[in-house]
Amino acid sequence: MLLEVRDLRVEFQTRDGLVQAVNGVSYTVEAGETLAVLGESGSGKSVTAQAVMGIIDSPPGRIAGGEVRFQGRDLLTMRAEERRRVRGDRIAMIFQDALSALNPVLTVGFQLGEMFRVHRGASRAEARARAIELMERVRIPAAKERVNDYPHQFSGGMRQRIMIAMALALEPELIIADEPTTALDVTVQAQVMDLLDELQREYRMGLILITHDLGVVAGVADQIAVMYAGRIVETAPVHELYRRPAHPYTKGLLESIPRLDHKGGELRAIRGLPPNLARIPAGCPYHPRCPLARDVCRENPRPPLYEVGPGRASACHFWKETMGE
């Protein structure tokens, strides 16, 4: 087991009161496996990743409970200095918008080389040489000339490649990619995803791919976890989930994908909005938007994660109906 997140809870103190951004999330990632975490904005998918990474802004954020076991050791109880050494070295993160995630006033060579300087004690010249190697590794043309360029001098796709190179630098066991292609053009998205997929296979890294794009997920993920209102509502191997979703929310998401063979028809969106995380409804948090909702859904306790098949779980009282339809 590479990573095991167990019953993770994260809260934020805001003006609206205590926001429960992550509410008992559990998942596992094996070496070489890709877990896609799917969900709308505010579903807690990024916050979960930040908690694993140890980069939650605190205050206002606070980890209220749970465990994050990485190679058997709980990251949450580690000393700060020990935790820092894991970050970037054993677990690395790729952020969404490379333009703002890279430092605008430092050259990409410096920012890449910094990984070797800090974690490996490399010399300046050595770090530079490794930075060029990395840029070549992610197929940036003319890496030698461009190593002294600044982030704004690269195109969006090239910048995201640099982000990937930075995460890859020390060959970590786990990479967390937080919407790595959202800020890119569709054609560039595919290139970047292919690159990430290829590198992951080559290094046999675990990958957590956070996204709201079902199209991105299908090609690369092994396992999917669908999140809603700070909880996992369904987990399944990727193809089974696409074929037969076991939660009405997943089903709604799949039905809302525009399809070429339904040209001209109206898009089928899920009605309503995700709940305010400071006031999550009682019972199943999805019930106000759910076409299957009945009385039992509006009452506590919330539906547990029912085991609905091998490696599959759904937090819906009516998973049988959902799957059977």
Binding site: R87, A92, V118
Partner: peptide, 22 residues
Amino acid sequence: RADYVRTAVAKGLPRRRVTVRH
């Protein structure tokens, strides 16, 4: 609160380096 500071932290840089360099 900038993204690039968060990146610097995620890179596992010591706090001092994050503050001074970035």
